[in-house]
Simulated assay, not measured.
Amino acid sequence: MDNNLHKYNIKHILIAVVIWEVIFWALLGSFYYYIADKEVLRFENQFFLWGLVIIPLLVMGYFVVLQWKNKTLSQLAPNKLLRYLTTPVSEVKSFFKFFLLRNGLALLIIALANPQYGKSKNKMVAEGIEILIALDISNSMHAMDLDPSRDRLTVAKMSIDRLLHNLHGDKIGILVFAGDAFLQVPLTQDYRAVRMFLQSITPEMMTNQGTSISLAIDKCIENFDMENGVNKAIIVMSDGEDHEGEAEEKAAAAKELGIIVSTVGMGTTNETPIPEYKNGKVIGLKKDYAGNTVFTKLNEDMLRGIANAGGGRYTKAEGNFVNMEELLETIKRLEKTEMESDLYSDFEDQYHWFLALGLILLIGEFFITESRSGVVHKLQDYEI
């Protein structure tokens, strides 16, 4: 008998695990990207998907345990004696046992996020306009100069939530930006979905920091369908610390296309430090490369200039409240157009499928041993 059969061939197992990890994350990423544009599918508790970070940790822990087992066997006895002291192990069964455990946990996490399917599809015709909110999520939006208990971004999100209560038949979407920009919520009349995605927005979503309002306006224009004849508006919510410039020119260009650009100032004109976060906790104040504390303040002149160039209005946050009445009046003066859209008014929970399959996999893992036996034993003796 080959004495190596009493130890784990970590190289072979590693190849199998890496192949599966690539397949799993590619499938999950493709599915998530697909449902981002589909109102028929959604996760009710999207926050729980962050629990999937456990999976890479589990993979690393698995290989640490395998190495520890091999090291322990080497210390137990010389290879020639292992055949008399231990049972041969099957790397195929070891991988399959881990496969069931890893995927069972992944399915339980997905079940916690509660995938939902829209089962009731109705056509809805309403008069409205299209509004894209460009929300600044740069690090400076962590500043707490508006409210001692809330940062600028939290106040902005609360204001957007209140804005949703005053919209009827209008389509709204959210684009987040810092040094880069991307569409977080496509234009929709499903305000409940907008609120759900709104809660998950944080500055940590953007790896490329800085503030480029010009890029945000450009991206908003790209995400409008300029051929549908519906009037359009952009609302930029920012502290106005634009690091790229050209924002007024982009707002003027949007106005020429018939898109009104309004701005909301998030912050005060007094310099204030920016909290530094790690793992969701404040660990100090943000500093530059020289070790000096970084300060931020509202640039009202910049935001007023953008609103003037875009034919819209400028309004400013006061405390934890943003009075958007005048801004809304500007938007409401736009001629509303009849829009037909699919509305999924009733969503059905699908978590039970993932929960059941996850439990089946975990129970199956419990009954599988790693000892070599039967067909698996014979298959493993062949070298491919």
Score class of each variant (00 low, 15 high):
L105G: 01
D180C: 07
F96K: 11
V125M: 13
A251P: 01
V322Q: 04
E335Y: 08
L303S: 04
I109V: 07
K378E: 04
P273V: 09
S140A: 05
I234Y: 04
K232P: 00
E248A: 08
L153K: 03
L285Y: 13
P203K: 04
G319Q: 07
M158E: 07
E91Q: 09
A36L: 10
N79M: 15
H377C: 05
G173P: 01
Y117H: 09
N231T: 06
R304D: 06
I201K: 02
W25T: 08
N208I: 15
I19T: 07
T293R: 09
T202S: 13
E130Q: 14
E241C: 05
H168P: 00
W68T: 12
A290M: 12
N228M: 12
N122A: 09
E246G: 00
N228I: 13
N3V: 13
K97M: 06
V375I: 15
E365K: 15
N114A: 10
L105S: 01
G51M: 11
I221P: 01
G245A: 11
G311V: 02
M124P: 00
E244T: 03
A309S: 10
V236C: 04
A252C: 05
K250H: 14
M205Q: 13
E222M: 15
L73A: 12
L57V: 05
R333V: 01
D349Q: 12
L327C: 03
E127S: 12
A36C: 04
D136N: 07
I235F: 08
F24I: 04
Y344L: 06
F47C: 04
E340A: 14
T188H: 03
Q46E: 09
I384P: 03
R162P: 00
P273E: 06
A77V: 12
T272H: 13
E326G: 03
E222K: 15
L82Y: 04
I201E: 10
M60E: 12
G173D: 01
D342P: 00
T269V: 13
T315L: 05
E204K: 12
A26F: 07
Q380Y: 15
G258I: 06
A16N: 06
L81G: 01
R313D: 02
R333H: 11
K232E: 02
T369G: 13
A111I: 07
L107P: 00
S149H: 14
A36Q: 03
P88M: 07
F99C: 03
W68F: 14
Q75V: 03
M302W: 12
E348T: 09
A356I: 11
Q380R: 15
F48Y: 15
L73D: 08
T315K: 13
L298I: 10
L28W: 09
T263Y: 12
L108V: 03
R42L: 04
G104F: 06
Y84S: 10
L328H: 10
L5D: 04
K171T: 01
A233V: 06
L379Y: 10
S371M: 13
V376N: 10
I23Q: 06
E130G: 01
I137H: 07
V230R: 06
E370H: 15
A126P: 00
M324E: 00
M226A: 10
T72F: 11
L215W: 06
